[in-house]
Amino acid sequence: MRLKKTGVMRLLVVGLFNYSTELEQALRLLESNGIDRSKMMAVPMEADSNRQLISGESRELSFDVGFAAATALGVVGISIGFVLSWGPILWGLISTASGFMAGYFITRLISARKKNAHMGRHACLPELVIIVRCEEESLEQVQMIMHHYGAWKLGIMES
C-alpha cells in the first residue's frame, strides 16, 4: 500500500489572483474536474491589516476633489462669463478645466506628503493567493484553468 502511494507525485499549485468573477469560474471548474473543495485554499492578502480596523478613507481623493472643484469654478466661470468678452461658454470651459486640474493636483500633492503613497503601490499587487493540491496527472489541467481564468502567476512545488 505504501509503495502505491509514493508512486503518485502530489503537487501544490499556488496561484496569485485578483478578486473577480473569473476567479469563481476557475474554482468551480476545478471542483467539477474532480478536485475536492478540501484540497483548495483561498488566502486574502491585506495590504495593511491594521488599516482594516481604523475607520476612515483608505484611498486617495484626488479625483473626488477634482470633480468638486470643477463644479465650483465652473459655476463661477459661467456667471462671470456673462460680462466678460469671451462669453459664458468659453469661460465656463476654461474655469471648469482649471478647477479640475487645481483640485486634482493639489490633493495629490497633499496626500503624497501625508505618505499615503504606499497605498498606490499596494493597489496593483495581487489580492488573493489560491492554493490547490493535485496529483501529477491533473497538473496540466489545473494550470490551464488557473491561467485561463486570470491567474497573475503560478508556482508549483512537490509536496
Binding site: 501544490l12 469563481e24 474554482l27 473543495r37 478540501s38 484540497k39 483548495m40 485554499m41 483561498a42 486574502p44 488573493l128 492554493i131 493540491r133
Partner: peptide, 11 residues
C-alpha cells in the same frame, strides 16, 4: 464567500 466555501481545507 471564499471564507465560507473553502474554510474546511485539508491541505
Amino acid at each position: 464567500f471564499l471564507k465560507e466555501r473553502y474554510a474546511g481545507s485539508e491541505i
